[in-house]
Design a protein around this nucleic acid. Structure first.
Length: 123
DNA sequence: GTTCTGACA
DNA sequence: TGTCAGTA
């Protein structure tokens, strides 16, 4: 569309380019209430500059294996100490354990694959 | 041309 | 998450 209105901010294509997330993913993040946007008269989404950093963090957490529900719960306290609660601390500790388990799993797999490759190269 | 929603894979 | 359809 080429509608002109007063709504400023990044359009979904801009945010996608700035974060590496696809427009499809960005709409999904919004649907999951991980990010918010304003709508122009034509219904187009417009994002605040701060959303760029937020999306990068979301993708980092997603890549680490956290689910969207967990991210939604945890995101508020990352940059806002006031949002940190005992319950959230337990939640984060649980995620830390999961990540450690995952690291262990990856490390074992790495060792296995490395051995196979070494064996192959040795002929 | 870009984005929107809903739907299917 | 990609992609297709029909729009605005």
């Amino acid at each position: 569309m080429t509608t002109t209105n007063s709504v400023s901010g990044l359009r979904i294509g801009d945010l996608a380019a700035a974060t590496g997330a696809s427009a499809r993913s960005l709409r999904y993040y919004e649907q999951q209430e991980l990010i918010t946007s304003e709508r122009s008269l034509g219904g187009q989404r417009h994002y605040d500059d701060a959303t760029v950093e937020r999306v990068r963090l979301i993708r980092q957490l997603l890549a680490a294996g956290l689910g969207t529900e967990t991210i939604r719960e945890v995101l508020p306290c990352v940059h806002d100490p006031a949002a940190r609660t005992p319950w959230l601390a337990e939640r984060l500790a649980a995620e830390l354990d999961r990540i450690d388990d995952r690291i262990d799993c990856l490390q074992r797999t790495r060792t296995t694959l490395a051995a196979v490759i070494k064996d192959y190269r040795a002929g």
